[in-house]
Amino acid sequence: MTSWNTEAIELLERKPKQQNWGARRAAKDKKYKSSSQLVDDYIVLDFETTGLRAGADKIIQIGAIRYVNHEVKDMFNTFINPFRHIPETVTRLTGISNETVELAPSINQKIEELLEFIGDLPIIAHNASFDMGFLYALDNIDGISIPEYIVIDTVKLARKKITEAPNHKLTTLTEFLQLEHDAHDAIGDCVATAAIYQYCVKKHF
Protein backbone atom coordinates (compact mmCIF):
# COMPACT_ATOMS: atom_id res chain seq x y z
CA MET A 1 0.00 0.00 0.00
CA THR A 2 1.35 3.44 -0.98
CA SER A 3 2.08 6.06 1.67
CA TRP A 4 -0.66 8.42 0.47
CA ASN A 5 -3.16 5.55 0.70
CA THR A 6 -2.09 4.86 4.27
CA GLU A 7 -2.37 8.54 5.16
CA ALA A 8 -5.84 8.80 3.59
CA ILE A 9 -7.06 5.77 5.53
CA GLU A 10 -5.66 7.17 8.79
CA LEU A 11 -7.41 10.48 8.18
CA LEU A 12 -10.70 8.75 7.46
CA GLU A 13 -10.42 6.74 10.67
CA ARG A 14 -10.04 10.00 12.63
CA LYS A 15 -13.11 11.69 11.09
CA PRO A 16 -15.39 13.43 13.61
CA LYS A 17 -18.29 11.45 15.04
CA GLN A 18 -20.61 14.28 14.05
CA GLN A 19 -19.73 13.74 10.40
CA ASN A 20 -20.32 9.99 10.76
CA TRP A 21 -23.77 10.90 12.01
CA GLY A 22 -24.23 13.14 8.98
CA ALA A 23 -23.38 10.31 6.61
CA ARG A 24 -25.80 7.93 8.33
CA ARG A 25 -28.54 10.54 8.32
CA ALA A 26 -28.02 11.32 4.62
CA ALA A 27 -28.36 7.64 3.77
CA LYS A 28 -31.37 7.09 6.04
CA ASP A 29 -33.42 10.23 5.45
CA LYS A 30 -34.03 11.20 1.84
CA LYS A 31 -35.04 14.79 2.44
CA TYR A 32 -35.34 15.84 -1.20
CA LYS A 33 -38.20 15.00 -3.55
CA SER A 34 -37.38 13.15 -6.76
CA SER A 35 -39.33 14.36 -9.78
CA SER A 36 -39.72 13.38 -13.43
CA GLN A 37 -41.58 16.57 -14.31
CA LEU A 38 -39.74 18.54 -16.99
CA VAL A 39 -39.08 22.19 -16.13
CA ASP A 40 -37.72 25.21 -18.02
CA ASP A 41 -36.01 26.98 -15.10
CA TYR A 42 -33.56 25.04 -12.91
CA ILE A 43 -30.18 24.73 -11.23
CA VAL A 44 -27.71 22.14 -12.50
CA LEU A 45 -25.48 21.00 -9.62
CA ASP A 46 -22.30 18.94 -9.41
CA PHE A 47 -19.73 18.25 -6.69
CA GLU A 48 -16.19 16.93 -6.94
CA THR A 49 -15.25 15.11 -3.74
CA THR A 50 -12.42 13.33 -1.91
CA GLY A 51 -14.28 10.01 -2.24
CA LEU A 52 -17.65 8.36 -2.66
CA ARG A 53 -19.03 8.36 0.90
CA ALA A 54 -21.27 11.31 1.72
CA GLY A 55 -20.53 12.73 5.14
CA ALA A 56 -17.30 10.75 5.52
CA ASP A 57 -15.69 12.12 2.36
CA LYS A 58 -15.63 15.83 1.59
CA ILE A 59 -16.58 18.25 -1.18
CA ILE A 60 -13.58 19.80 -2.97
CA GLN A 61 -15.37 21.67 -5.78
CA ILE A 62 -18.87 23.06 -6.18
CA GLY A 63 -20.29 23.73 -9.63
CA ALA A 64 -23.78 25.13 -10.19
CA ILE A 65 -25.40 26.82 -13.18
CA ARG A 66 -28.75 28.63 -13.18
CA TYR A 67 -30.83 28.15 -16.32
CA VAL A 68 -33.91 30.24 -17.16
CA ASN A 69 -35.91 28.98 -20.12
CA HIS A 70 -32.97 26.59 -20.75
CA GLU A 71 -30.51 29.47 -21.13
CA VAL A 72 -27.54 30.13 -18.82
CA LYS A 73 -28.22 33.07 -16.50
CA ASP A 74 -25.62 32.68 -13.76
CA MET A 75 -22.82 30.40 -12.59
CA PHE A 76 -21.42 29.37 -9.20
CA ASN A 77 -17.99 27.75 -9.16
CA THR A 78 -15.55 27.38 -6.29
CA PHE A 79 -12.93 25.03 -4.95
CA ILE A 80 -13.43 23.94 -1.34
CA ASN A 81 -10.72 23.13 1.21
CA PRO A 82 -11.72 19.76 2.74
CA PHE A 83 -9.04 20.08 5.45
CA ARG A 84 -7.90 16.57 4.71
CA HIS A 85 -5.62 14.81 2.26
CA ILE A 86 -6.94 14.49 -1.28
CA PRO A 87 -6.06 10.99 -2.57
CA GLU A 88 -3.79 10.83 -5.59
CA THR A 89 -6.45 8.86 -7.47
CA VAL A 90 -8.86 11.80 -7.05
CA THR A 91 -6.21 14.28 -8.21
CA ARG A 92 -5.53 12.18 -11.32
CA LEU A 93 -9.27 12.05 -12.07
CA THR A 94 -10.21 15.67 -11.33
CA GLY A 95 -6.94 17.58 -11.56
CA ILE A 96 -7.67 18.96 -8.07
CA SER A 97 -4.68 18.60 -5.76
CA ASN A 98 -4.00 19.48 -2.14
CA GLU A 99 -2.18 22.58 -3.42
CA THR A 100 -5.24 23.58 -5.49
CA VAL A 101 -7.47 23.83 -2.41
CA GLU A 102 -4.88 25.00 0.13
CA LEU A 103 -6.16 28.59 0.13
CA ALA A 104 -9.74 27.78 -0.86
CA PRO A 105 -12.69 28.52 1.48
CA SER A 106 -14.25 25.86 3.70
CA ILE A 107 -17.67 24.39 2.92
CA ASN A 108 -19.07 26.33 5.90
CA GLN A 109 -17.94 29.56 4.28
CA LYS A 110 -19.68 28.77 0.98
CA ILE A 111 -22.75 26.66 1.74
CA GLU A 112 -25.08 29.60 2.51
CA GLU A 113 -23.99 31.29 -0.72
CA LEU A 114 -24.77 28.09 -2.63
CA LEU A 115 -28.21 27.79 -1.01
CA GLU A 116 -28.97 31.41 -1.94
CA PHE A 117 -27.83 30.70 -5.50
CA ILE A 118 -30.18 27.71 -5.77
CA GLY A 119 -33.11 29.60 -4.26
CA ASP A 120 -36.40 27.80 -4.78
CA LEU A 121 -35.52 26.33 -8.18
CA PRO A 122 -35.50 22.57 -8.79
CA ILE A 123 -32.09 20.90 -8.97
CA ILE A 124 -30.92 18.79 -11.89
CA ALA A 125 -28.00 16.41 -11.35
CA HIS A 126 -26.56 13.33 -13.00
CA ASN A 127 -26.76 10.38 -10.59
CA ALA A 128 -28.47 12.79 -8.23
CA SER A 129 -28.32 10.57 -5.14
CA PHE A 130 -24.54 11.11 -5.06
CA ASP A 131 -24.63 14.91 -5.08
CA MET A 132 -27.70 15.10 -2.87
CA GLY A 133 -26.06 12.74 -0.39
CA PHE A 134 -23.13 15.14 -0.02
CA LEU A 135 -25.43 18.15 0.20
CA TYR A 136 -27.73 16.69 2.84
CA ALA A 137 -24.82 15.30 4.85
CA LEU A 138 -24.31 18.99 5.79
CA ASP A 139 -27.84 19.33 7.14
CA ASN A 140 -28.03 20.25 10.84
CA ILE A 141 -24.23 20.46 11.17
CA ASP A 142 -22.98 23.79 12.54
CA GLY A 143 -26.46 25.31 12.20
CA ILE A 144 -26.74 24.59 8.47
CA SER A 145 -30.28 23.78 7.29
CA ILE A 146 -30.66 22.32 3.79
CA PRO A 147 -34.12 22.91 2.25
CA GLU A 148 -36.26 20.12 0.81
CA TYR A 149 -35.45 20.48 -2.87
CA ILE A 150 -37.19 19.01 -5.89
CA VAL A 151 -34.55 17.02 -7.78
CA ILE A 152 -34.51 15.68 -11.33
CA ASP A 153 -31.98 12.92 -12.03
CA THR A 154 -30.71 12.90 -15.63
CA VAL A 155 -29.60 9.26 -15.26
CA LYS A 156 -33.21 8.20 -14.75
CA LEU A 157 -34.38 10.58 -17.46
CA ALA A 158 -31.78 9.37 -19.96
CA ARG A 159 -32.68 5.73 -19.33
CA LYS A 160 -36.17 6.55 -20.60
CA LYS A 161 -35.27 8.96 -23.39
CA ILE A 162 -31.85 7.77 -24.67
CA THR A 163 -32.40 4.02 -24.83
CA GLU A 164 -29.86 3.51 -27.64
CA ALA A 165 -26.86 4.44 -25.47
CA PRO A 166 -24.70 1.51 -24.25
CA ASN A 167 -25.00 2.82 -20.68
CA HIS A 168 -26.03 6.05 -19.01
CA LYS A 169 -22.80 7.28 -17.42
CA LEU A 170 -22.19 10.96 -18.03
CA THR A 171 -19.09 10.40 -20.17
CA THR A 172 -20.85 7.69 -22.21
CA LEU A 173 -23.84 9.91 -22.90
CA THR A 174 -21.75 12.93 -23.92
CA GLU A 175 -19.75 10.73 -26.30
CA PHE A 176 -22.93 9.10 -27.64
CA LEU A 177 -24.55 12.51 -28.23
CA GLN A 178 -21.25 13.99 -29.50
CA LEU A 179 -21.23 16.73 -26.85
CA GLU A 180 -18.17 18.62 -25.65
CA HIS A 181 -17.39 17.59 -22.08
CA ASP A 182 -14.74 18.73 -19.61
CA ALA A 183 -15.15 15.60 -17.50
CA HIS A 184 -14.66 15.53 -13.71
CA ASP A 185 -14.68 19.30 -13.48
CA ALA A 186 -17.77 20.44 -11.58
CA ILE A 187 -18.75 23.14 -14.08
CA GLY A 188 -17.84 20.93 -17.04
CA ASP A 189 -20.08 18.20 -15.66
CA CYS A 190 -22.88 20.74 -15.09
CA VAL A 191 -22.70 21.88 -18.73
CA ALA A 192 -22.80 18.26 -19.92
CA THR A 193 -25.69 17.41 -17.58
CA ALA A 194 -27.67 20.42 -18.82
CA ALA A 195 -27.08 19.41 -22.44
CA ILE A 196 -28.34 15.88 -21.73
CA TYR A 197 -31.38 17.23 -19.89
CA GLN A 198 -32.21 19.61 -22.74
CA TYR A 199 -31.80 16.79 -25.27
CA CYS A 200 -34.30 14.70 -23.28
CA VAL A 201 -36.71 17.65 -23.08
CA LYS A 202 -36.63 18.12 -26.86
CA LYS A 203 -37.07 14.39 -27.41
CA HIS A 204 -40.12 14.44 -25.15
CA PHE A 205 -42.04 16.82 -27.41
Rank of each mutant, 00 (worst) to 15 (best):
Phe83Val: 08
Lys73Met: 07
Asn127Gly: 06
Ser145Leu: 10
Asp142Gln: 14
Leu115Val: 05
Ala104Ile: 00
Leu157Val: 09
Gln109Val: 00
Ile80Pro: 07
Glu148Trp: 01
His184Val: 12
Arg66Asp: 09
Thr172Arg: 03
Glu148Thr: 15
Ile96Lys: 09
Thr163Ala: 01
Ala137Leu: 04
Gly143Cys: 06
Ser129Asn: 11
Ala125Lys: 04
Glu88Ile: 08
Glu112Met: 11
Thr89Asp: 14
Lys156Arg: 14
Val101Cys: 02
Ile86Glu: 04
Arg84His: 01
Glu180Asp: 15
Pro82Lys: 09
Pro122Ile: 05
Ala158Asn: 07
Ser106Glu: 06
Ile111Tyr: 14
Gly119His: 03
Gly95Asn: 08
Lys160Asn: 13
Phe83Thr: 13
Ser106Thr: 15
Leu135Val: 05
Asn140Arg: 11
Phe76Asp: 14
Arg66Val: 01
Glu175Trp: 03
Ala183Pro: 06
Glu148Ala: 15
Ile144Arg: 04
Thr172Ile: 04
Ile111Met: 13
Phe117Gln: 08
Phe76Val: 05
Gln109Trp: 00
Ile80Thr: 10
Pro166Trp: 01
Glu71Thr: 14
His168Asp: 07
Thr94Pro: 06
Asp189Arg: 06
Ile146Arg: 12
Leu135Asn: 07
Tyr67Arg: 02
Ala104Ser: 12
Phe134Gly: 08
Glu102His: 13
Leu170Met: 13
Gly95Thr: 15
Ala125Val: 01
Thr100Asn: 08
Ile123Glu: 10
Ile86Pro: 01
His70Arg: 10
Arg92Ile: 12
Pro87Leu: 10
Phe79Pro: 02
Gly143Trp: 02
Ala125His: 07
Glu164Arg: 12
His184Thr: 10
Glu116Gln: 13
Asp189Trp: 04
Glu102Ala: 15
Pro147Asp: 14
Lys160Ala: 10
Phe176Val: 06
Ser106Lys: 09
Thr154Tyr: 00
Val72Phe: 00
Tyr149Ser: 11
Ile124Tyr: 04
Phe83Met: 12
Ile152Lys: 10
Leu170Lys: 07
Phe79Cys: 06
Pro105Asn: 03
Ile123Asn: 12
Ala186Gly: 06
Pro147Arg: 09
His184Met: 11
Val155Thr: 13
Ile80Phe: 10
Lys110Thr: 13
Asp139Ala: 08
Val72Ser: 08
Ile111His: 08
Ile86Ala: 01
Lys156Asn: 13
Ile146Val: 15
Ile162Ala: 02
Arg84Cys: 10
Asp142Ser: 11
Phe117Gly: 05
Leu103Pro: 00
Leu157Trp: 00
Ile123Lys: 05
Asp185Lys: 15
Asp185Gln: 15
Thr91Arg: 14
Leu173Val: 05
Asn69Ile: 00
Glu116Met: 05
Asp142Ile: 01
Glu113Trp: 04
His126Asn: 06
Gln109Ala: 12
Val101Gly: 05
Asp131Ile: 07
Ala186Phe: 05
Thr94Ile: 09
Ile111Ala: 09
Phe117Thr: 08
Asp120Ser: 15
Ala137Ser: 15
Ala128Met: 02
Ala104Trp: 03
Ile111Phe: 09
Ala192Thr: 12
Ile96Thr: 13
Val151Gly: 12
Glu164Phe: 00
Lys169His: 09
Ile144Ala: 10
Asp182Glu: 15
Ala128Tyr: 03
Gln178Ile: 01
Leu170Asn: 12
Asn81Arg: 08
Ile96Arg: 12
Val68Asn: 10
Asn127Gln: 05
Glu148Arg: 15
Lys160Thr: 11
Asn77Pro: 01
Leu103Ser: 14
Gly188Phe: 08
Glu116Arg: 14
Asn81Thr: 05
Asp185Pro: 03
Tyr67Pro: 01
Ile96Ser: 04
